[in-house]
Amino acid sequence: MKSRHVSRVIGASPAAVYEYAADVGNLPQWAAGLAQAEVVRDGDRLLVDSPMGRVEVRFVERNQFGVLDHDVTLPSGTVVTNPVRVLAHPDGAEVVFTVRQIELDDDEFARDVNLVAADLERLERQVSQHS
């Protein structure tokens, strides 16, 4: 299995980036690779319509370390753990998302990496508009 780290520097404080990204209600505005419609809460589970079909998402609890790790249960039942960090950067914050090649051929994996890069670009735009 391959992994690739995708990152984006955002000209806002790490706290501002983390707060925006950690708000699951904001997912459809920036994380199109995950959520294409409103997030449905079912207890501590989040149900979202994604490009992969209906998936379940569970985020780690909010924390002071900028960790936004989340598990995505695919329609096949496979659980993919997505490590995500919001780090301090001299120009504001850097978001690092680790993409893992699970149940994907090389072309699909490359597509996922590009989708994550586009999501992080949208996150930058959204945070800039809300800062």
Rank of each mutant, 00 (worst) to 15 (best):
P75C: 13
R122I: 08
I10E: 14
R122E: 12
L47M: 03
A31G: 07
L74N: 03
H130S: 14
L68N: 06
A22F: 13
R4G: 03
V57M: 04
N26W: 02
F59D: 04
R41W: 02
Q129M: 13
V39G: 00
R122A: 14
D42W: 10
R54M: 12
E19S: 06
M52V: 13
L74R: 04
D71N: 06
V9A: 12
V99P: 08
V57F: 00
V40R: 13
E121P: 02
V127K: 01
D44K: 07
I102G: 00
V95I: 05
P51V: 01
V9Y: 01
I102C: 03
V113I: 11
G11Y: 06
V96D: 11
E56W: 02
I102F: 07
V67H: 06
Q29D: 13
G53V: 00
P90Y: 14
A12E: 07
V99D: 00
V116D: 05
V84C: 01
S13I: 10
M1H: 13
G53A: 03
Y18N: 03
H70E: 08
R4D: 11
V79A: 04
E108K: 14
E108S: 13
R8Y: 08
F65S: 09
L46Q: 06
G92A: 10
S128L: 11
N26T: 15
R100L: 11
D23I: 12
V96T: 09
L120V: 14
N26L: 05
D91P: 02
R111I: 10
D23P: 01
Q129T: 15
R85Y: 09
Q126A: 14
V96I: 13
D49P: 01
S50Q: 04
D23Q: 05
D69H: 08
S50K: 00
T78S: 07
F65D: 15
S76Y: 06
T81M: 12
G25I: 11
D119I: 04
Q126N: 09
N82V: 11
G25W: 09
E19K: 10
V40L: 08
G43F: 03
L46W: 01
L27C: 03
Q101Y: 01
L87E: 13
E56M: 11
V9W: 12
A32I: 03
S50Y: 00
T81I: 07
A37L: 08
V57D: 01
A16P: 01
V84M: 00
L115K: 09
D49T: 15
S131R: 13
L120P: 03
A32T: 13
V95N: 04
G66N: 04
H130M: 10
